[in-house]
């Protein structure tokens, strides 16, 4: 890469800035938080505006709202069982928090708060804390012995099994947060890289603008793909939460 050319600043898009003017600056309210609020408001708009007709035969928007509701509800019940109904609001909030972060990030000038490891890490940590609390509530301290050292395992293997199970348990929030974070960062870095590539090629002599069409086409295809990834990652985050909750309630 020649130093004279415009450098690829693929990571500048992830930089945080205070939002909402002076007030936001004074309380460190970032643009990430602004988009969280926007995402939440959009979800609420879907639920309130969509469900406003309260029709027996739903219209388009009401169908969408009911679909969202039923999708998460069925996920909870099928993955966790009957107890899943209690965790439904939690999983619903989690899913739409992540989904809105992923989807809003695909809009121009928007900020993808799920591309911050701090946010995904905090979400994953919250999930694992909730799961652990649920496990202890459901099974008492019995949970620790049963979960990390299942009955029927030879006692001699305890020094091996218990650390492995503990590591496995603790690696859940790590993998949960890294997966979402990596997917979002990879997608947005690729957008940025190909966009910069287009600009660089366009200023490259006679045939430059012609070749520059290539990265644009790739980016258009990438948008479709990233839409899929955005939904899939939100789904994965939610369903893994459900699976962990199932394990917490039923112990494996």
């Amino acid at each position: 890469m020649e130093p004279a050319e415009p450098t690829i600043d693929a990571l500048g898009q992830f930089r945080l800035f205070p939002s909402l003017g002076m007030l936001g600056r004074s309380v460190n309210f970032t643009q990430a938080n602004t988009f969280m609020v926007i995402g939440g408001l959009l979800t609420m708009a879907l639920l309130y505006y969509g469900m406003r007709p309260r029709a027996i035969v739903p219209g388009r928007l009401q169908s969408a709202a009911e679909l969202a509701y039923n999708f998460i509800y069925d996920m909870c019940v099928s993955q966790v069982g009957e107890e899943g109904k209690r965790f439904f609001p939690f999983v619903f909030t989690l899913f739409f928090f992540v989904l809105m972060g992923n989807l809003l990030g695909l809009l121009p000038y928007a900020f993808t708060y799920t591309s911050h490891i701090a946010i995904t890490g905090a979400l994953a940590l919250m999930v694992i804390v909730v799961v652990t609390i649920v496990a202890i509530r459901e099974n008492g301290t019995h949970f620790f012995t049963e979960y990390f050292f299942p009955a029927g395992t030879p006692k001699a293997l305890a020094p091996l099994i218990i650390p492995i199970e503990v590591i496995s348990y603790l690696s859940r929030p790590v993998s949960l947060s890294i997966r979402l974070f990596a997917n979002m960062v990879a997608g947005h870095v690729m957008f940025e890289v190909f966009a910069t590539f287009t600009v660089m090629l366009a200023g490259l002599g006679l045939f430059g603008p012609l070749i520059a069409v290539g990265p644009v086409v790739i980016n258009v295809a990438l948008v479709g793909f990233e839409l899929l990834v955005a939904c899939l990652q939100a789904y994965v985050f939610a369903i893994l939460t459900c699976i962990y909750l199932h394990d917490a309630v039923h112990l494996h």
Binding site: S171, V174, I178, A182
Partner: peptide, 22 residues
């Protein structure tokens, strides 16, 4: 979920890396 070969590969990698990191 995560059906494509690349997706599965990524997930396996993430799981391994996460466990190793912890």
């Amino acid at each position: 979920f995560g059906q494509s070969p690349l997706g599965i590969g990524l997930r396996v990698g993430v799981e391994m890396v996460a466990a190793m990191a912890v």
